[in-house]
Design a protein around this nucleic acid. Structure first.
Length: 1057
RNA sequence: GGGCCCGUAGCUCAGCCUGGUGGAGCGCCCGGCUGAUAACCGGGAGGUCGGGGGUUCGAAUCCCCCCGGGCCCA
């Protein structure tokens, strides 16, 4: 057997050198493959799917870095826990954004040109190239971040097998009778010539016309229905007018004309249109307007109006008409408005007029407007209205108007025939399934439920190219066939095309199973949310090859925008395909905003890419920083924040430097000299840190089981900085400096090694580079059988036998005592090097008394006092002043309404009340309202704040006091320590080995010679001096230096023997 | 316009569910330590808890309204 020997870690923490080295190590030794292989051999599965990012750029946003880091931590944790972890990443490759980028690259202005100028096959090839090139760059950055996922084998929605898996769901939906085609009012981008879903819409403030139009009431002279609109281009398609049945309307006279409008809008309309004089002729309820017929003002120039005239009347539409804007009479164009459309259906209107083509231009039906772009027609229409005396007033207004998310063109609402999936029929099922999921945080469910309440049918078709082709074939007789796989395609007389994308799939002609006639595919492609929404199964296998108990994922996590995005899409597809939610646990994470809390945007100049963050701060610091942020809240980006995290990692690093330096020096062997063998030699601080690390392991495990990554990260970070570096190492330093390998020292080593190894394992999912580096340098040389990478190790066990909550609480008190004594020293101007005679703690708290007794040695050591004791507060003499702190929690419920007066009295008579209570056990106080209150110790905390001859620091549980009077002996020791420190510095400046012996010459100011002489052997022992001479003669060949100590000059020379 | 989230020290954030009189880190100022040393440690100053109202003996915490930011939707 090869004997282990602890390794050494050197130098300062430099994230980049560590990370570059470890990255290379992982690559050269195929560490991920080994981790993966080990995981694959495990029986229990952990099912996870990466929410696929959209590869429209080449460098991931810092928020994507957060996203992937959280995933990485969970996956690494689950692997360490012995799961077979499914870790396939993915990319969402189809869709309009990529098409638009390719169009820009190829100089295409409108959709038509794709087929006419470029050819669909070449266009698709370009789209594919762009997606593949971007995703390979993004992959590079995810790897840079240390994310261990199956990067060689990501799922891509553009692959044939993925598309085929999608077809399976289409067929399922069809078989359930939920797939349909119907006329729909949709957002339509005239530039992209396609329908857009609501989430593909942005809103932008635009200036539009604002006009009041007079619709002549049929058969009445000079009487008009007054309507208001900001979209004059929809007037040629006007079909009816809508009113509110329960609102009051008026008929007014202006000059020789009469107008009908809502009473609530009268004042506004009159003011805006500048009507000077008017007379209200009549008031009546809106429902009386029902059926009132009118004539369209443009009927002479719009042929379509001929057909529509039979519908020109007033309909009741309380769901549409409001009293907040307009005239209370709303012009209805069901071909250009969603609400209008639903009213039209309700009233049985049989013509849905929409005289606008795919590129947003008026058609033949619009008569003289033919060929004009809809929005460009606005001024022409306004002029025509004016010419016909139908325009009451025209102006303009700024309002938010929907635009295309990709090309920013203002969109139109337009009635078109679309394929829809009737998910509204599954509303209750969706709600039920959503409720069964564990949402973190809980409000994510609330958001989703709000959305499900307003659920709409899913318009799935897009009139584009780069997407999953709808697998629907139709024959001339109108028979439909929905194909669920390539095999079925062949069964129906088709041949597998080069690939399943357009244009190749369009050439596949099938034979109608009903009538035998040739069937052609409908030209549409699917909404991209269809693609990502099926990832839960399609990323793994065609459902026919997927075990049914593996459909539901254990865990997914994405940003809160995905509640209505991917999480909803998955839920929808899960319910459509399998009747259940396809995930069990969902962690929602926040957005990374800029340092002022604003959205990051390249155009705003506040954008930080993952590349920049890695370059400036390093991977592990970035990772730990994002991880410790509350997962579901937005995170303000902060260079300082990452810098702080880096500093903490540097402290962690130095902790290992410290441990490895001494352990190596002493040839410590953690296997031979492990904790078990040194158990009897453990000191109280060892037992404490052993308890702490196991408590930490327990808590971190619990948090990671709950997916509360940030809580785990915070604990891990705090532990190494505060418990190990600030406290434990401080306590064991003197033991470590002992030269011989005594059990006391070895016990500290064994403890420290155990703690540091365990911490490294806990931290390894979060800071995989640094953990690997330290593991390879420090742990592995000492444990020859250990795996080559820390990431092949198992999650640390919780050694319950070490956990002692009482001990942890007591040590917390010791820490408070130490801190109070340090504060008391500070007030008295006594430095820590100067020993003091005693520390007295005035407290009536029994825990304090017990703790101090138990830890007396430790307290004396760290506080540098000869003595420590606890005394009851009542034992203090006369030269004392007390402070009283009311205990509100007790006083409140006891005195209720009088509580205020009691507190006021107590604060005004602190010393007096305290003395009375200390002497008699209680105090009777007179209140302002004449009443009395009996105050006992239960209601107040009494603390001395001044004691003659002592320095006092008060705490939660009493006062810590140090004796400020120093004896000669104490002064001598303090001075000796000052001298020792200087000699140590000089040894170091000479680069002497730790164990080198020296001779010392000192010139000491006369008044202090006696003090120093008393301590010569002490000084010699601490500095490894064979001989110390107090003299004014210093040899020329020795190293000599002059020092200032307490304002006086000491000359010291040393020479190695 | 609607739903949800956030607003606490100069900065970044805990605390809020379950009310008891505000914490941490960084920065700043002061100091200590000097065999982790281009390190390490301590102390101090810093706050109308976004604003207003309500409930309560008592509100950062519970309720209502408003303001600012974010996400989603109109």
């Amino acid at each position: 057997m090869v004997l282990g020997r602890i390794g050494r870690i050197n130098g300062h923490y430099n994230p980049w050198t560590v990370e570059e080295e470890i990255k290379r190590f992982w690559e050269e030794n195929k560490i991920y493959d080994k981790v993966k292989k080990k995981s694959m051999s495990q029986p229990r599965k952990f099912l996870f799917i990466d929410g696929p990012p959209y590869p429209s750029g080449d460098i991931p946003h810092i928020g994507t870095a957060w996203n992937k880091t959280i995933k990485d931590v969970i996956l690494r944790y689950k692997r360490m826990r012995g799961y077979n972890v499914y870790d396939r990443p993915g990319y969402d490759c189809h869709g309009l954004p990529i098409e638009v980028k390719v169009e820009q690259k190829l100089g295409i202005k409108v959709k038509r040109e794709i087929e006419e100028k470029i050819g669909v096959d070449k266009f698709i090839q370009e789209c594919k190239n762009l997606a593949l090139s971007n995703l390979s760059s993004m992959t590079k950055w995810f790897r840079e971040l240390g994310v261990f996922m199956d990067w060689e084998n990501p799922y891509l929605t553009l692959r044939d097998e993925y598309i085929e898996a999608g077809w399976w769901l289409f067929k399922k939906v069809y078989e359930k009778g939920l797939l349909d085609s119907e006329l729909r009012v949709v957002y339509w981008c005239p530039r992209c010539s396609t329908t857009l879903a609501e989430y593909e819409i942005e809103y932008k403030v635009l200036e539009d016309p604002s006009i009041y139009v007079k619709f002549p009431v049929r058969g009445r002279e000079k009487e008009y229905i007054l309507i208001w609109t900001t979209t004059p281009w929809t007037l040629p398609a006007n079909t009816f007018v809508m009113a509110h049945p329960d609102e009051t309307y008026v008929r007014i006279r202006v000059g020789d004309e009469k107008y009908i409008l809502a009473k609530a809008r009268l004042e506004h309309v009159v003011r805006e249109t500048g009507i000077r004089e008017y007379e209200v002729i009549e008031e009546f309820m809106g429902k009386e307007l029902e059926g009132l017929e009118y004539d369209h003002p443009l009927r002479d120039i719009v042929p379509l109006q001929e057909k529509l005239s039979k519908h020109h009347k007033v309909f009741m539409a309380p769901e549409v008409v409001t009293m907040y804007e307009g005239t209370g009479l709303v012009h209805g164009a069901p071909g250009h408005g969603m609400e209008d459309f639903s009213i039209a259906k309700k009233y049985g209107v049989d013509i849905i007029a929409s005289p606008v083509d795919d590129e947003g231009r008026f058609t033949e039906e619009a008569g003289k407007y033919k060929g004009l772009y809809a929005r460009d027609a606005n001024p022409v229409i306004i002029q025509d209205l004016r010419d016909r005396g139908a325009l009451l007033w025209s102006g303009s207004l700024q309002h938010k108007y929907p635009i295309c998310w990709r090309c920013k063109t203002p969109v139109l609402q337009r009635a078109t025939r679309q394929w829809i999936i009737r998910v509204t029929k599954l509303k209750e099922e969706l709600k039920r399934e959503a409720s069964r999921v564990n949402w973190m945080p809980g409000w994510a469910l609330e958001r989703l439920m709000n959305m499900l309440e307003n659920l709409q049918d899913w318009v799935i078709s897009r009139q584009r190219y780069w997407g999953t082709p709808l697998p629907i074939w139709i024959c001339p007789e109108g028979h439909r066939l929905v194909i669920g796989s390539i095999k079925e395609l062949e069964e129906h007389g088709g041949r597998r095309p080069v690939e399943l994308h357009r244009p190749w799939i369009d050439e596949v002609v099938l034979k109608c199973p009903v009538c035998g006639k040739p069937m052609k595919r409908v030209p549409d492609v699917a909404d991209v949310w269809f693609d990502s929404g099926i990832a839960f199964y399609a990323a793994r296998a065609h459902p026919e090859r997927l075990p049914r108990d593996e459909v539901v994922l254990d865990f997914i996590t994405e940003g809160h925008d995905q509640i209505r995005g991917w999480f909803f899409s998955l839920l929808r597809s899960g319910v459509l395909g399998f009747g259940k939610a396809p995930y069990k646990n969902v962690l929602v994470h926040g957005f990374v905003l800029d340092e002022h809390g604003r959205e990051m945007h390249k155009s705003l100049g506040n954008y930080v890419g993952t590349d920049e963050a890695i370059e400036k701060m390093g991977r592990d610091p970035l990772r730990l920083w994002v991880l410790q942020a509350t997962a579901w809240e937005d995170l303000r980006f902060s260079w300082k924040g990452i810098e702080e995290t880096r500093k903490d990692l540097s402290i962690a690093w130095n902790t290992y430097v410290f441990a490895s330096t001494y352990m190596e020096l002493d040839c410590y062997d953690p296997i031979e000299q492990g904790l078990e063998r040194l158990r009897e030699h453990l000191r109280i601080e060892d037992k404490w840190i052993l308890s702490r690390i196991n408590t930490l392991t327990k808590k971190v495990t619990e948090y990671l089981e709950k997916y509360y990554v940030h809580e785990a990260a915070r604990l891990i970070r705090k532990f190494i900085v505060e418990d190990v570096s600030h406290w434990y190492i401080r306590l064991i330093r003197p033991r470590v400096w002992i030269e011989e390998n005594v059990p006391d020292k070895l016990a500290a080593y064994a403890t420290l090694y155990y703690v540091l190894k365990k911490w490294l394992l806990l931290a390894s999912p979060m800071i995989p580079f640094m953990a690997e580096k330290i593991y390879r340098e420090f742990i592995r040389p000492a444990e020859p059988g250990a795996p080559e990478s820390i990431h092949l190790m198992e999650w640390p066990s919780i050694d319950e036998e070490y956990i002692d909550p009482g001990l942890e609480e007591e040590m917390e008190l010791v820490r408070q005592i130490y801190e109070a004594s340090a504060a008391a020293r500070m007030k008295a101007g006594i430095k820590l090097r100067q020993p003091v005679k005693s520390i007295i703690i005035y407290s009536d708290d029994e825990r304090i008394a017990e703790t101090v007794k138990k830890y007396a040695d430790l307290v004396k050591r760290i506080a540098n006092a000869k003595n420590v004791e606890v005394r009851p507060v009542s034992e203090l003499g006369k030269l004392v002043r007390y402070k009283i702190e009311p205990i509100y929690k007790e006083i409140g419920p006891r005195f209720r309404k009088q509580a205020r007066q009691v507190i006021k009295y107590l604060l005004e008579h602190q010393d007096e009340v305290a003395r009375t209570i200390l002497a008699e056990g209680k105090a009777l106080i007179k209140l302002e309202d004449g009443g009395e209150a009996e105050i006992t110790k239960d209601y107040v905390k009494i603390t001395p704040v001044y004691i003659e001859g002592y320095s006092v620091e008060d705490t939660e549980w009493g006062a810590v006091v140090i004796d400020t009077r120093l004896t000669e002996e104490e002064l001598a020791e303090g001075l000796a320590r000052d001298v020792i420190r200087r000699i140590q510095v000089m040894r170091k400046e000479l680069n002497l080995p730790l164990d080198a012996k020296i001779i010392v010459w000192m010139t000491v100011p006369e008044p202090h010679v006696k003090l120093i002489e008393k301590k010569l052997s002490y000084i010699a022992g601490e500095t490894r001096a064979e001989k110390i001479m107090i003299t004014s003669e210093h040899p020329g060949d020795a190293y000599t230096k002059e020092w200032e100590i307490e304002g006086e000059t000491y000359k010291i020379s040393i020479r190695q023997i």
